[in-house]
Amino acid sequence: MKLLSLVKVVKDFPLGILGRERIRAVDRVSFDVYDSAIFALIGESGSGKTTIGKLILGLLKPTSGEIIFNGQNVSKLLEDPEKYYRNVQGIFQDPFSALNPVKRIGQFLERPLKIFKIPDVKKRLKEVLSEVELPFDSVEKYPHELSGGQRQRVVIARSIITRPKIILADEPTSMLDVSIKASILNLILRLRDDYSVSFIHVTHDLASAKYISDRIAVMYAGQIIEEGYARDLVDDPLHPYTKLLRSAAPDPNKSIAKIGQTGEPPDLIALPNGCAFKPRCPYASKECSSFDQMIEKDGRKVRCILYR
């Protein structure tokens, strides 16, 4: 069942004081997330993936388009934030800035329990801490006494405390060491299996996206340029940008000489007409300047003239 849908969502940010000029951070993005599914949103810096996360969490309002949760428009649902945030939660990238340094872990976790009026505070705290594999005595600790991985577990514990339906995880592992990263990814998988909660996994890492996600959408300069099942998309990428990401991923069997020039990341203020990836694309042709639509082919979606 469809749990969360984005329909042609656009987000503009004003540039400068008068706000006459605008940057389009998110450009007509549509996708669906289903029950107990993990949906990955992949992109590099400036691709708009984090902005989408903030739109879903209601931290920003879309310029146009609709976000629909459980059949209802999110802007309407947000009139009762308590109810919305009981079902929709978030985990952020930086576990060091996510915890207020002056508060104990217990205080940090208790607040949502109070706000959402969840009974039996102590019992629930014990439950969520054991779910994220932290000892109960962590509640007495201050953030600086915990390591990065432990802090991220605390943040995850907070996000599941209300038993939400969907959790937006914005780069949950990118600031963590590799040895910790894998265990956090496994924790996300286990939470999905145990509580059938859906995740939107925002990341720049193709490998970890494929590891846990069911579907992947690749973003470039505010648009989704390819979407498909994790296996198809990674094993057989269609869009030249996805191919570039795929070839840039580390591989012990590949020497340095094989990677070509990859060009500069896009400048959102001065995007070219048509396809935004054109300046970096090895297959670019004149027609790319006027082409800008999603093509659906064999159940896969790709925004590239090559598949017309």
Binding site: F92, A98, I115
Partner: peptide, 26 residues
Amino acid sequence: TREFVDLARITATRSSKIIFQEIMPN
């Protein structure tokens, strides 16, 4: 724009609480 403020907001924390308990002490 710090993440703990965003976290407080998605827990439906009231603005006054965010101001006085999250931002001010810092």
